[in-house]
């Protein structure tokens, strides 16, 4: 008997609490920056594609919903020829972002992706690639990698000496 009254009292008190319900979509949800929502591909500070097509995101994905094909431009810079995420399978676990060695793939605070047709949940590179650096500004993978690409020759990366002259006999 006492416990029933106590429950009714507690329920009654909730009528005076601050409302959790918001008037979505008129009112937008406040999401933190690290909220794991829609996946994007970002660009480096020089506006080059950050993704180098290393396949680590695809390997890390527990539902195998990422597929891509790496290719190379005429200067040896790697980028994805196609990059596809099947969001109808994605569980937004963020493993792809953790695996990415170049900060290319990032999960952003956006969940408004609902579609009437499931086929529309298949995102291609044009749907994923954004014109910005996303959450990690300043990082440029090719500036620390040893590979020469257009605009960066051997020995010009950070922490690199100029190429060795193999014909030199100097100590």
């Amino acid at each position: 008997m006492f416990s029933i009254i106590q429950s009714m009292w507690l329920t009654f008190l909730h009528a005076f609490h601050k409302r959790e319900t918001i008037q979505y979509p008129e009112e937008k949800v406040k999401l933190t920056t690290r909220w794991r929502g829609r996946i994007v591909l970002t660009r480096d500070p020089d506006m080059g594609e950050r993704c180098v097509g290393c396949y680590l995101c695809a390997a890390a994905c527990p539902v195998d919903c990422i597929s891509l094909q790496a290719t190379e431009d005429e200067n040896g810079r790697r980028y994805p020829e196609f990059f596809r995420i099947n969001f109808s399978r994605c569980i937004f676990c963020g493993y792809c972002e953790e695996a990415c060695p170049t900060y290319a793939i990032q999960l952003i605070p956006d969940f408004e992706m609902a579609e009437y047709d499931r086929q529309n949940l298949v995102y291609e590179k044009k749907d994923l690639l954004i014109e910005g650096e996303g959450k990690y500004p300043g990082y440029n993978y090719y500036r620390v990698a040893g590979l020469a690409i257009g605009g960066k020759k051997k020995g010009e990366a950070i922490n690199e000496n100029p190429p060795v002259d193999v014909k030199s006999l100097l100590p």
Partner: peptide, 16 residues
């Protein structure tokens, strides 16, 4: 066992 892209590689043709 690390094979990837199973649910995405043909998704452009048919999502199922």
């Amino acid at each position: 066992h690390r094979y990837s892209g199973r649910t995405a590689m043909l998704a452009n043709i048919n999502v199922s």
